[in-house]
Structures are given as C-alpha cells and as structure tokens.
C-alpha cells in the first residue's frame, strides 16, 4: 500500500514532535532540524530510529545524515567553504535535500540548514517509492 504525501508529512511531523518535544505548529516544511527545532546530535539518531519504526524502512548509517562527508579534508575548501568535490559528494549523498540556497554560498557552517523537515519528507518518500509493494 502506497502512503500519500500528506500522510508522510503528518507522520514525519509526529516523529519530530515526539523526538524533539516541539509543538506541531513549529514543524513547518522549511524548518531546519537543528536551528529551528533544536535537534542535538543524539536527536538525529533518535529521528532515524523513529522513522524506521514508523514507516517500516531501513536507514543505513550516513544515508539520511551523511556527516562523514565533512570528515574528509578533501571535501573542505578555503574560507570555511565546501570544496567543489565536497559539494558534489554532498549532492550525491543527499538527493533528497534542496541545495538551491546552499549553492549560492556553500559554507560548512550552513550544512546543518540542509536538514529541513522537507528533506526528511522527501527522503521518506524516496525510500517508500523504492520499497517493494506488499
């Protein structure tokens, strides 16, 4: 059974309300998990576990939050920016993220802003589309 986008939005919202202790009205699609919703490092793992349980999907390490990309010095450029190679890697690893704003000024410090509620919704949708129909 396919789940509609509206249902994915609703259930991702429930996951974030439970994991981060935020109010439903705070969970807008453009809200960033760290900056707007206050997620800390352990919360990202909590979100992964809850998404797996809620949607019955498997989320491999680094697939939703590919933090390893920033640990590779080849991916870092000058003046706190991501190198072109790093940007390419990030886009490969995060096809579900919206890079339109980030592309203008690819600062390492702005990478957390790529993780928005919409990023999660798109990721879950892509996982559900790839999953075999029961």
């Amino acid at each position: 059974m396919r789940i509609s986008r509206d249902e994915v939005v609703k259930q991702v919202g429930e996951v974030l309300v439970d994991a981060l202790g935020v109010d439903h009205e705070d969970v807008t699609e453009n809200a960033t998990l760290g900056g707007d919703l206050g997620a800390e490092s352990i919360d990202y793992l909590d979100i992964v576990f809850r998404l797996e349980k809620t949607f019955g999907i498997k989320i491999p390490k680094g697939e939703l939050f590919p933090d390893d990309v920033l640990n590779n010095p080849d991916n870092l450029g000058a003046n706190g920016r991501i190198s072109p190679r790093g940007l390419e890697r990030l886009k490969e690893c995060m096809p579900h993220a919206d890079f339109s704003a980030f592309d203008q000024n690819p600062l390492v410090s702005k990478v957390p802003d790529l993780f928005t509620v919409k990023t999660l919704i798109r990721y879950v949708q892509s996982k559900l589309e790839k999953a075999p129909v029961a």
Binding site: K58, P60, K61, G62, E63, P66, D68, V69, N71, N72, N75, R89, E92, C93
Partner: peptide
Amino acid sequence: VDRAASCQP
C-alpha cells in the same frame, strides 16, 4: 548490524 550507505565520503 549497521548497514553501509551507498555513497562514499
């Protein structure tokens, strides 16, 4: 066990 992601750092 952990499953490796398809993309590489």
